[in-house]
């Protein structure tokens, strides 16, 4: 029994961590640009393909390539698609991100086909290890460790560096931050680069978990993580991480606790829970401070 509980707990934390990283990547961009970037899914997907191409040569090289590809794609889409729309209203930005997301996904389907490709990435992590008498998958421990480390690193960056301070100010009131001398291009580029790094980390963990790469990967992660960041409080980074974590955790708990015949309807229960949270706290669990009038 204890073993079952502990295993479920590790499941919950590792899946929750993956969604928290995804939600944080989305939240960083929303914070500085009020853009809900659905193309975040394609950052994860392209990083996945970078792993597919290089994993058989060298694992560190594949991880580095995943990061470089995701960062460059994030910066490139910012420059080409989102910068010209910077003063557009959030609805325009949202639709642009949908268009971009479809464009990259369909282009990849055209180039490599839509069939999933198997990737035997980090097979050694599939090994079970015994911790205090409980058998756990090593990959889950790694997922928890990486998620935790990246959440801490992001928090440190935002709290303790000059650029992090500028990003938090820009997230609360971009115009006033600019009046004080904060450069919009720099802050936004850093946010995109960070979202690229987070997407690459999610891609590595997700590919190691599923062993598959396909043009549609990432979309489900991003949709669920987005729902999580709404629950947590759009525009609030702790809220995004917490909401992403809770939604990821809830899927695992529902999977475990629901009777077998109801498990197919897991998402229904999840979204009912989401609707309830939003009924009670429409502004999210940790509301953002700055979603009000600008200068």
């Amino acid at each position: 029994m204890i073993e079952r509980v502990l295993q479920t707990l590790v499941d919950v934390v590792s899946v929750g961590g993956l969604y928290a990283l995804t939600a944080l990547g989305i939240g960083l961009i929303f914070g500085v640009m009020r853009l809900i970037n659905f193309a975040h899914a394609q950052l994860i997907m392209m990083a996945g393909y970078a792993i597919l191409v290089l994993f058989s040569q060298s694992v560190p090289l594949a991880i580095a390539a995943a990061a470089v590809v995701a960062i460059l794609l994030a910066l490139g889409t910012e420059r080409v698609v989102f910068r010209p729309l910077r003063d557009a209203d959030p609805a325009t930005l949202l639709i642009a991100s949908f268009a971009l997301s479809f464009f990259i996904e369909k282009t990849m389907i055209m180039l490599v086909g839509s069939r999933p490709k198997g990737v035997d990435f980090l097979p050694e992590l599939a090994r079970q290890i015994e911790v205090a008498g409980v058998r756990l998958q090593l990959l889950q421990i790694v997922t928890i460790a990486v998620s935790g480390a990246l959440l801490i690193a992001t928090t440190w960056f935002l709290r303790s560096t000059k650029l992090g301070l500028e990003m938090r100010a820009a997230a609360e009131n971009f115009r006033m931050a600019q009046v004080l001398g904060v450069r919009a291009n720099r802050v936004i580029a850093v946010a995109f680069a960070m979202s690229g790094i987070l997407a690459a980390a999610v891609a590595c963990l997700f590919v190691a978990q599923t062993g598959l790469v396909q043009p549609r990967m990432g979309l489900q992660l991003v949709v669920i993580a987005f729902v999580g960041s709404v629950i947590g409080g759009l525009g609030s980074l702790p809220g995004a991480a917490l909401g992403g974590f809770l939604v990821g955790a809830a899927t695992i708990l529902l999977q475990t606790l629901l009777p077998a015949e109801l498990r197919v309807f897991r998402e229904v229960f999840l979204f009912v829970a989401v609707a309830l949270v939003l009924l009670l706290r429409p502004q999210g669990l940790i509301p953002a401070p700055g979603l009000k009038a600008r200068v």
Binding site: L165, E172, L180, V182, G290
Partner: peptide
Amino acid sequence: LVPEGRNIFGSLTVAENLRLGATP
């Protein structure tokens, strides 16, 4: 510029608000 309504960053600390003033 000190705009109308002041526009301090309410979610940042007093010290952080001041540090932002020294951005340039």
